[in-house]
């Protein structure tokens, strides 16, 4: 028990440390922008006064960090009165700053878009699981047959075809050739299917391979022989016993992949013009050089990713007694 708590505390400390570092990196990224953000936003024709106004409004007139360095004066200590501290103080109060372009709070803009990204990720996960489990079980129980080879081939395709190749291909097939779905947008409920399949293709391929090897491994266990010996049908053996044990590693992958899906949604959202967080980052953030918005989006996506991974680790430990007890 003592070790368990200690382990948990260590995991929590590491997660917090990682989040602190990631936030710090993102905060300081804005210093990388070549030239002056104000001129980039306001244009070359902006007056000195406008630039000074802009800088004051967004705190850009203040020092970037605890110390600054220039070749003429060397190191200069700025104290706690700096932008890095400002950003953190804002963050702790749930304030991600004000957009450079729209003057709206960045958090509001993100919260507006985040639900559609989460929905896309969840639907693609559901699609991936409902393809992967039957296909994986079929392949695993028919090892080295035509069915197995076929499912391995499909899985391989899913892994090696990048999102931005699968997406346009699906648009070509289902929106241009057969005209079943709309090519882009999210006007109708069924519009989520093409983007979700695109986003979930790689995951479903990875899962199929996992379920397959998991099933093959579990089929060799003693309890399977027992179950068969007591006369259970093969169907019951597979779906009631084997699958239950075989799904443990799959749960881990699902959790780890939730983060990957949220990050990977950036490309899918661009392909299908899906109005989620990724498109906000690309079009409104990077496209319009709204650096404050870019910071906010990167921050929210990476913190979600880190938290999803840490949670998965905990669930995994809890699910598998062998790991829990060791």
């Amino acid at each position: 028990m003592k070790y368990k708590i200690l382990n948990f505390a260590r995991q929590l400390a590491l997660t917090l440390l990682v989040i602190w570092t990631v936030v710090s990196l993102v905060t300081l990224l804005i210093e990388l922008v070549p030239g002056d953000p104000a001129t980039t936003i306001l244009g070359e024709t902006a007056s000195m006064e406008q630039i000074a106004d802009f800088n004051r409004k967004h705190g850009l007139d203040r020092p970037a960090f605890f110390f600054s360095y220039n070749s003429a004066e060397g190191f200069d200590w700025n104290g706690a009165d700096n932008r890095y501290v400002d950003y953190w103080l804002g963050l702790l109060q749930g304030d991600l700053g004000t957009s450079f372009r729209t003057d709206r709070p960045v958090l509001d803009m993100i919260l507006e878009r985040y639900p559609s990204t989460i929905m896309l990720a969840i639907v693609s996960m559901i699609i991936a699981v409902s393809i992967a489990i039957p296909l994986g079980v079929l392949a695993g129980t028919n090892k080295n047959t035509l069915i197995d080879n076929f499912s391995s081939f499909v899985a391989l395709l899913g892994i090696s075809l990048p999102t931005f190749v699968i997406g346009p291909f699906l648009v070509y097939l289902f929106a241009v050739k057969f005209q079943i779905f709309a090519p882009t947008g999210s006007a109708n409920p069924e519009d989520i299917i093409l983007p979700a399949v695109t986003l979930g293709a790689a995951l479903s391929a990875i899962l199929t391979r996992m379920v397959r090897s998991s099933v093959i491994e579990e089929l060799g266990e003693d309890y399977v022989r027992t179950a068969r010996a007591k006369g259970l049908s093969e169907r019951k053996v597979v779906y009631k016993h084997v699958l239950k044990n075989g799904l443990i590693p799959v749960v881990t992958i699902l959790g780890l992949q939730l983060g990957v899906l949220l990050a990977g949604a950036i490309i899918t959202e661009k392909i299908f013009n899906w109005q989620g967080l990724g498109l906000l980052l690309l079009d409104d953030g990077i496209g319009k050089r709204d650096y404050r918005l870019v910071q906010g989006c990167v921050l929210v996506i990476s913190v979600t990713y880190i938290l999803a991974n840490s949670l998965t680790d905990l669930v995994y430990r809890w699910l598998d007694p062998r790991i829990r007890l060791s």
């Binding site: 590491l14 440390l17 990682v18 570092t21 990631v22 993102v26 990224l29 804005i30 990388l32 922008v33 070549p34 983060g259 990957v260 949220l262 990050a263 990977g264 950036i266 980052l281 953030g285 990077i286 650096y291 870019v294 990167v298 996506i301 990476s302 990713y305 880190i306 991974n309």
Partner: peptide, 25 residues
């Protein structure tokens, strides 16, 4: 390995690349 590696592993790779290119050009 306890800290630096974990930080880089914790960041979704593509997102970090996107962020870097977004700020660097």
């Amino acid at each position: 390995s306890g800290y630096v590696f974990n930080v880089f592993l914790a960041f979704p790779g593509l997102l970090l690349a996107i962020a870097l290119v977004a700020f660097l050009g």
